[in-house]
Write a protein that binds this DNA or RNA. Structure first.
Lengths: 207, 207
DNA sequence: CGCTAGATTGACTGGTCAGTCAGCCGAACC
DNA sequence: GGTTCGGCTGACTGACCAGTCAATCTAGCG
């Protein structure tokens, strides 16, 4: 009953979709390209998926769920807020480091594509922002972050920065050595938490 | 010689394109929709434009040139760097306030569409980032901004935040009262210049 | 008035794909 | 060996739409 342990063509198709969507963009990727990349007949794609769209939806949701989970995890920890933000940034940047093609598809075709797919997934996307906003507002309540910057606004800046960063790596193929990734992680947090203007000497806080 | 002072159908078509692209998105906007919106025959669109793409390109370049000009202007002034950044932010937010449809098209279909049109216009887009980066690095040389944050990185955060902000207005129709716009202008600058962490009392700088 | 040139019209063509479907293959079970 | 059923195949269809083009209109001009 199992001469070959189920070649899982479904997964193969999904993986091929990542490669093809990343290479050509979702719009100009033909279903036949995905089938070819997966080494599978055209029709089989429709055996496993209802539509071309569904493949992208599935790729996105699968991965985004992990991000939401990780963000929640981070939010629950009792680390200082700066480290929590760093935790979220780390997760995203590491995701890109390990699966650049998948992340490219998610960012370019969903997150940044507010018209088409971003529209559909707006609730999930917002959820991620909200989790960051929560981290910020918790910190504000605890007096660890200034409370005169709206938490949702801060979350927006945070995600704006990270998205822009990934977009840079994706399209201008900024080197992306391990060192670059680490530096970027540090800089996002420093910029957002400390600001661009110089800080007075010492670290004493406003009472 | 001039009973009707040249109805300038070309402009009418371009304006119709703004409306239609903003409403339906570039991709699902048909050329026939634009013609209908402009009250003009289908073929006339191709009398004035080579392709559907060319219309979008023209809409983008026309407006983006203004942004670049304004940014340069701001960069040349001798205002404090914080005010320079505020100047750029103001220009963009005011552009959105006065021509939300056009800005929607530009942001959604070009700036955020790194695959399709963003690709084509990357040099112009980068130029805008570079101008902000210059403002930052000038300030760093003058000791007015910390110099341990890469200027290009700062520019990225700045644009990331603003793009995210406009995207919010565009898609979630966040109110957008005059008050909201003013508040947003203030918050972007505050967040980016001062950071999220509380600042020690007084404003004395690191020596 | 006849002529030219540019503006204007809209039916039509050609190419592109997403999605369908009729049927094939091979494993397991009778 | 026959039957069944899921995985699997790929040629085909139907819809859609950017871009073309031949024809019509209008304005000036000699």
């Amino acid at each position: 009953m199992s001469r070959v342990p189920a070649p899982d063509k479904r997964r193969a198709i999904l993986d091929a979709a990542i490669t093809v969507f990343a290479r050509q963009g979702f719009h100009s990727a033909r279903v036949s390209d995905v089938a070819a990349e997966a080494g599978v007949a055209y029709g089989l794609v429709y055996h496993y998926f209802d539509s071309k769209d569904q493949m992208l939806n599935e790729l996105f949701s699968e991965r985004w769920a992990l991000l939401l989970e990780a963000s929640q995890e981070v939010g629950r920890s009792d680390a200082p807020p700066r480290d929590k933000l760093a935790g979220v940034a780390n997760f995203i940047i590491e995701s890109y480091r390990h699966e650049p093609e998948l992340m490219k598809v998610i960012i370019v075709e969903v997150t940044r594509a507010a018209n088409s797919f971003g529209r559909t997934h707006l609730p999930e996307i917002r959820r991620a922002y909200d989790l960051v906003a929560e981290i910020v507002s918790d910190a504000q309540r605890a007096g660890e972050f200034r409370d005169d910057v709206d938490a949702n606004f801060a979350a927006m800046v945070f995600y704006g920065a990270i998205e822009q960063l990934l977009t840079g790596w994706i399209f201008e193929s900024i080197p992306g050595t391990d060192e670059d990734y680490e530096r970027a992680k540090r800089l996002v947090i420093e910029t957002i938490c400390d600001g661009l203007e110089p800080r007075p000497v010492g670290d004493t806080l406003v009472g």
